[in-house]
Simulated assay, not measured.
Amino acid sequence: MLHRIGVISDTHLPQFKQLPEALWTHFADVELIIHAGDLSQLSVLSELETLAPVVAVQGNVELPEVVMQLPIKKEITVGGCRIGIVHILGSAQAYPQTARREFPLARVVVFGHSHNPYNEEHAGQLLFNPGSATDRRHQPTCSLGMLTIDDQDGSVHGETIPLPR
């Protein structure tokens, strides 16, 4: 079975007025959405849940309502794939070591915070940051992510989806 998981991070609402319009098209057929933190307000989850179930962690720029409801990190399993989720993974040079320490058995570690997309394998662990959906900072565009898990061959593939300006 193929599993398509939408991945989003650093939405920072209401500072950025709304979720990107392209999200509704790209995530229309996903079975799950992962939000890797910095929602800022819980209404983001309600909006995303109109498309698919949502698993989220808190970031470092959250209203108290988010901090009270969401964990700092979480591990889930989709098909046969273990996925660790955290907002801050540390410095880019330390991503592989930090990911392995935080989620030793995870096949994928999803994170956010930097607003920089990241999609690299390190010793059998895929590290995936979708970038920011609303604040491109030093990137050419904002972006979303998609994880595709294939239960048949045990593979997982991450894709960064640039958004129109």
Results as ranks from 00 to 15, higher is better:
residue 25 T to G: 11
residue 162 P to R: 12
residue 8 I to S: 03
residue 137 R to W: 10
residue 43 S to C: 12
residue 142 C to D: 02
residue 23 L to S: 01
residue 71 P to M: 08
residue 16 F to I: 11
residue 101 R to S: 06
residue 62 E to T: 10
residue 44 V to F: 07
residue 129 N to D: 14
residue 88 I to R: 14
residue 58 Q to A: 15
residue 88 I to H: 15
residue 116 N to F: 02
residue 64 P to D: 05
residue 27 F to K: 00
residue 5 I to Q: 05
residue 35 H to Y: 02
residue 49 E to R: 15
residue 150 D to A: 13
residue 156 V to C: 11
residue 139 Q to W: 12
residue 73 K to D: 09
residue 55 V to Y: 01
residue 71 P to A: 10
residue 36 A to Q: 04
residue 135 D to T: 01
residue 14 P to Q: 13
residue 94 A to N: 14
residue 162 P to W: 11
residue 133 A to Y: 00
residue 163 L to D: 05
residue 19 L to D: 02
residue 36 A to Y: 01
residue 114 S to V: 02
residue 45 L to K: 14
residue 157 H to Q: 15
residue 4 R to I: 00
residue 44 V to Y: 07
residue 127 L to I: 14
residue 129 N to V: 07
residue 145 G to E: 03
residue 87 H to E: 12
residue 9 S to C: 08
residue 68 M to E: 14
residue 26 H to S: 04
residue 103 F to K: 01
residue 43 S to V: 14
residue 145 G to M: 04
residue 25 T to V: 11
residue 80 G to H: 10
residue 44 V to E: 09
residue 163 L to P: 07
residue 147 L to S: 07
residue 120 E to V: 02
residue 110 V to Q: 07
residue 142 C to K: 06
residue 149 I to T: 08
residue 111 F to H: 15
residue 82 R to Y: 04
residue 110 V to H: 04
residue 106 A to W: 03
residue 11 T to C: 09
residue 87 H to A: 12
residue 138 H to K: 13
residue 35 H to E: 03
residue 55 V to S: 06
residue 123 A to L: 13
residue 69 Q to Y: 01
residue 24 W to V: 09
residue 140 P to S: 11
residue 32 L to F: 01
residue 40 S to K: 13
residue 118 Y to T: 06
residue 157 H to L: 07
residue 8 I to P: 00
residue 25 T to Q: 15
residue 96 P to D: 12
residue 119 N to L: 03
residue 19 L to K: 01
residue 64 P to F: 05
residue 117 P to S: 13
residue 93 Q to N: 09
residue 148 T to C: 07
residue 69 Q to L: 12
residue 84 G to K: 03
residue 133 A to M: 03
residue 149 I to W: 02
residue 108 V to F: 05
residue 163 L to N: 07
residue 117 P to D: 10
residue 130 P to E: 03
residue 78 V to D: 05
residue 160 T to G: 00
residue 164 P to Q: 11
residue 61 V to D: 06
residue 48 L to Y: 06
residue 27 F to L: 02
residue 140 P to T: 10
residue 30 V to D: 02
residue 22 A to L: 09
residue 132 S to P: 08
residue 37 G to I: 08
residue 160 T to C: 09
residue 49 E to L: 00
residue 10 D to C: 14
residue 69 Q to V: 07
residue 14 P to Y: 13
residue 85 I to W: 03
residue 124 G to W: 05
residue 85 I to P: 00
residue 82 R to T: 11
residue 56 A to I: 04
residue 95 Y to S: 06
residue 32 L to N: 01
residue 107 R to A: 13
residue 2 L to D: 07
residue 136 R to W: 00
residue 136 R to M: 11
residue 38 D to Y: 06
residue 42 L to K: 12
residue 4 R to D: 01
residue 156 V to W: 00
residue 78 V to Y: 04
residue 60 N to R: 13
residue 139 Q to M: 15
residue 138 H to P: 00
residue 104 P to G: 02
residue 84 G to L: 06
residue 36 A to V: 01
residue 78 V to S: 03
residue 128 F to Q: 05
residue 76 I to R: 08
residue 128 F to W: 04
residue 154 G to T: 08
residue 164 P to D: 12
residue 50 T to E: 15
residue 115 H to N: 12
